[in-house]
């Protein structure tokens, strides 16, 4: 079983478009389990027409709550809190959005007026799609611990893949390089970095490549909207060459992508146009990279 994670650094470069297309193409010869690791803004479900099978609650993190009856307003909680989460007014209260759940105030309160309340932070789901089971999640607005939810979704997807003796776990990653990305990269055999030839795309690709290198995950680059700026595309290719990172392929800027999206389909299922053809070519090479050592 192989685990592939799709990343980008910069958002909106086409991670989910590529993930859906690869799910479509890969499912024609392999058995898959899919995981959407962008728990803030999960979009893979929008192009895979899933049927929801299971819903689970995600409890994680905690916030401090001060009982006004017991509180003697000594101010010790406000003094020890490093996150400015204790608000003084008539007595003291905790701003749940600022609270990091560290429980420092809980341990320091001399009259035990503070309790820690576990947060109902989100939900995770198992759905069925025509390309394989999909594990996805929704972290509630403003919650912490997106990394934990990403880890949970991936673990569940992986367990399912082991049960089903699946060939590939395909993980659609979040943007950025921080906590949820680190969780998404963990355990991956290969990272596919989707980038675009813009000044931001070049900058953020370098940061995500440094991140995959840091975690010793081999990476390949897929250049999306490649004809938008031949100069930036050249920069990206030169950078990848210098880093020893193979460029898997180049996708043209095309209206097929939003059109497929509006119809809720992977672009490879919607059209046989240049983007779909380039993705087929990219998949053929990716297949080599993933499975060649198993043949």
């Amino acid at each position: 079983m192989k685990q592939l994670v799709i990343l980008s650094g910069k958002g909106g470069t086409g991670k989910t478009t590529v993930a859906a297309a690869l799910a479509h193409l890969a499912s024609q010869e392999f058995s898959l389990v899919l995981a959407d690791a962008d728990v803030d803004a999960a979009n893979l479900e929008l192009v895979l027409a899933p049927t929801l099978e299971e819903t689970h609650e995600f409890h994680s993190g905690q916030v401090a709550v001060i009982d006004p009856e017991t509180c003697i307003a000594c101010g010790r909680c406000a003094e020890v809190c490093r996150f400015d989460a204790v608000v003084a007014g008539e007595g003291y209260r905790v701003d749940p959005l600022a609270c990091e759940g560290c429980a420092t105030c809980f341990y320091q309160c001399p009259v035990e007026a503070i309790r820690m309340e576990e947060q109902h932070a989100g939900r995770w789901f198992v759905s069925n799609t025509r390309f394989g089971s999909l594990y996805h999640a929704h972290l509630f607005a403003g919650q912490e611990n997106s990394g934990k939810l990403v880890t949970l979704v991936k673990q569940m997807a992986r367990l399912r893949a082991m049960d089903d003796v699946a060939d590939l776990v395909l993980v659609d990653g979040p943007p950025g390089i921080g906590c949820p990305v680190i969780s998404a990269v963990s355990g991956a055999d290969l990272a596919l970095i989707v980038t675009e030839p813009t000044v931001s795309g070049v900058h953020d690709m370098a940061r995500i490549l440094a991140t995959t290198t840091h975690f010793q995950t081999p990476a390949l680059v897929l250049l999306n909207k490649t004809d938008l700026s031949p100069a930036r595309a050249g920069e990206i290719i030169a950078y990848c060459e210098q880093q020893g990172t193979p460029v898997l392929g180049q996708l043209p800027f095309s209206d097929d992508v939003p059109q497929a999206l509006v119809r809720g389909q992977p672009v490879t299922a919607y059209s046989g146009g240049p983007v779909a053809m380039a993705l087929q070519d990219a998949w053929a090479r990716l297949r080599e990279a993933l499975f060649s050592d198993e043949v």
């Binding site: 909106g12 728990v39 803004a41 979009n43 912490e144 939003p258």
Partner: peptide, 29 residues
């Protein structure tokens, strides 16, 4: 991007939030 703690930290004491989107199902979601 996103909707978790780094976004909250940025928005916390703003007077106004301007949300930029694109007119696609991803953008809407």
């Amino acid at each position: 991007p996103g909707a978790s703690c780094p976004v909250v930290e940025t928005l916390r004491d703003a007077d106004m939030v301007l949300l930029v989107t694109e007119p696609t199902p991803f953008g809407l979601h």
